[in-house]
Design a protein around this nucleic acid. Sequence first.
DNA 1: TCAGTAATGATAATAGTTATCATATAAATG
DNA 2: CATTTATATGATAACTATTATCATTACTGA
Lengths: 133, 133
Amino acid sequence: MKSDKLRITSQRDVILDELRAAKVHPTADELYEQVRRRLPRVSLATVYRNLEWLSEQGLARKIEVGGRQKRFDGDISDHYHVRCHKCGRVADVEMDLLDGVEDRIAQCCGFTVTGHRIEFTGLCPACSNGSAC
Amino acid sequence: MKSDKLRITSQRDVILDELRAAKVHPTADELYEQVRRRLPRVSLATVYRNLEWLSEQGLARKIEVGGRQKRFDGDISDHYHVRCHKCGRVADVEMDLLDGVEDRIAQCCGFTVTGHRIEFTGLCPACSNGSAC
DNA sequence: TCAGTAATGATAATAGTTATCATATAAATG
DNA sequence: CATTTATATGATAACTATTATCATTACTGA
Ligand SMILES: [Mn+2]
Ligand SMILES: [Mn+2]
Ligand SMILES: [Zn+2]
Ligand SMILES: [Zn+2]
């Protein structure tokens, strides 16, 4: 009988490792550049594929913020983000989760509400003081 | 002396009118289909251009929710949204805005925080009861 | 009526992501 | 350890949503 277990490849290993090491919330291509340093023959498709896979496995998070590109987070704990509307940089926000807020709005729209996400917007330190991002 | 006033064209007029009439938060191509009924020769580019323009003028809002496509809102009042993670539908949430929440996190990340956005997620009525969206 | 300029429609280009497919490789089996 | 086989990979094509280009159209004011 064949196993249906998924494999741990060196690519997966390095991708998750680099994602966790990144202080920023990298886009797929930003992470690709990092991973390339350790695996020069890696494909961008592999990075995309595994970011998707890691998210499905609950080992990483796809954070849906505004902006064209998706960003990823190696920190799977529930937390909020702030995004710079000038350069797109995303940082963590140290704020307690709003508790029970989903129940408060559960009735009014007919939706079955299961979660919420707060995205603060503003200017990052670099963009605040006129310097190029 | 030449005027630098911007023109109200019939396309603009109809686009804003249809956007305001839409109960959903349409994507550009959804709105394009609506506008086409009244202006059969309209171009999709014109819809994109004017949705952008209307947003800049403060006559409409570009709502940055998750999902691939941008959505637009003819209701320019500040309010939160809930998005169906199955079909992408977006509805308004009847909840008072969180007050002073931006100040509470202003220090912790170095960002100059100027706004926030809450996106609730869940299942819309149609997706809740097994029926096709 | 005319000149000047902004907007339009058609379409090309771009960006980001996903799909395809031949080859490589991890892990189960013997 | 060698064999088998399903999964993962790398290269690249295809796709989707959006933005840019540009010749033409049509407001607007003189
Ligand atoms: Mn984070
Ligand atoms: Mn709305
Ligand atoms: Zn910035
Ligand atoms: Zn739905």
